[in-house]
Design a protein around this nucleic acid. Structure first.
Lengths: 164, 164
DNA sequence: TAAAAAAGAATGAACGTTCATTCCTATTTT
DNA sequence: AAAATAGGAATGAACGTTCATTCTTTTTTA
């Protein structure tokens, strides 16, 4: 909190005029980033395209977005690996809520049209996003240098994982 | 550290007779767990089997191991997502070291025998372990209940991701 | 009895948060 | 027009707590 106040050029106590406490600040920042990310990824996307095209579009968009916004990626990842994020996911998965509609819709369509494997949604998510996140992390940490083709190949390999 | 001492039935200072500091303790525990895990996963494994069989064997063994040892899994995951783990991976990847030999050998064999995609090792690792870790996490957190068949299907899907 | 090991109280740094005070701007009063 | 007042925003020192580590004392071992 002290560092945030510093970077904002503001006194330590001022933060608490805008955010009740640290947890609220973290949650609100997460909401904002996820909204921004969803908007960016959804650009040029249409539900009318074939499943495979939709998948490749969302996958590459997302991976590119993470690579171009490494700080946001790091934040989202830390959030998801923290108790905040676990609670968040628990609400979303068990609550059958709205969130992550784009992705959920895609997988549900894919399964019902028999072009994706008939596996639980959670597993399809893991097959698609597991490698994507791992690769983004490795790129940001400098373990690999992703370029346009490598990105496409990676997402296509993810597609091989989920497709029937 | 206080909790660890308590659980060990030992005074707070005693730990420091066996471990220089917390970092060393963390690193040594990690080494021990990884060794144990590698041993467990390597059981019944042979380099002479076909690539696909080797992959499915290691994958299912690893996933089952994580599911049966959730505490170890949580520890290994936290370690890898921490600065300790990032430094550890950096040494291993950029240093071209020995570690993770079983897996590395498998992927190198797979690529050279043209049965796996010709992608950088790091990406093949991501395609194989990304979903595996995600699925293990989701199981442990109670978001899904993995049984024998679901485990096999998941690993087979991972195989579809890496295979040519 | 000397040396090694264990114990746990003490230490100090770091953290999130609070609160009495100051500062700034807008409104009211002279 | 100038002075006085009010109210909300900002400040940063101070607080209580937690944590890894150290230090001194006590106990065990050889």
């Amino acid at each position: 909190m002290a560092m945030i106040a510093d970077r904002a050029g503001v006194g330590a106590g001022t933060i608490y005029r805008y955010f009740e406490n640290k947890d609220v600040l973290i949650a609100e920042l997460h909401r904002e980033l996820e909204e921004k990310m969803t908007a960016a990824v959804g650009k040029g996307y249409s539900k009318e395209m074939p499943i495979r095209v939709r998948f490749l579009h969302l996958g590459t968009s997302l991976l590119k977005y993470f690579i171009e916004n490494p700080l946001e990626f790091r934040y989202l990842e830390q959030f998801h690996n923290s108790p905040y994020g676990v609670d968040y996911r628990r609400d979303k998965i068990l609550g059958k809520q709205e969130g992550c509609n784009i992705f959920r819709d895609l997988f549900e369509d894919g399964v019902s049209q028999q072009v994706m494997k008939d596996l639980p949604l959670v597993i399809l998510f893991a097959l698609a996003f597991g490698p994507l996140l791992a690769v983004a992390r490795d790129h940001i940490l400098g373990f690999i240098a992703l370029d346009e083709v490598l990105i496409v190949w990676t997402i296509e390999a993810c597609w091989d994982g989920v497709r029937r």
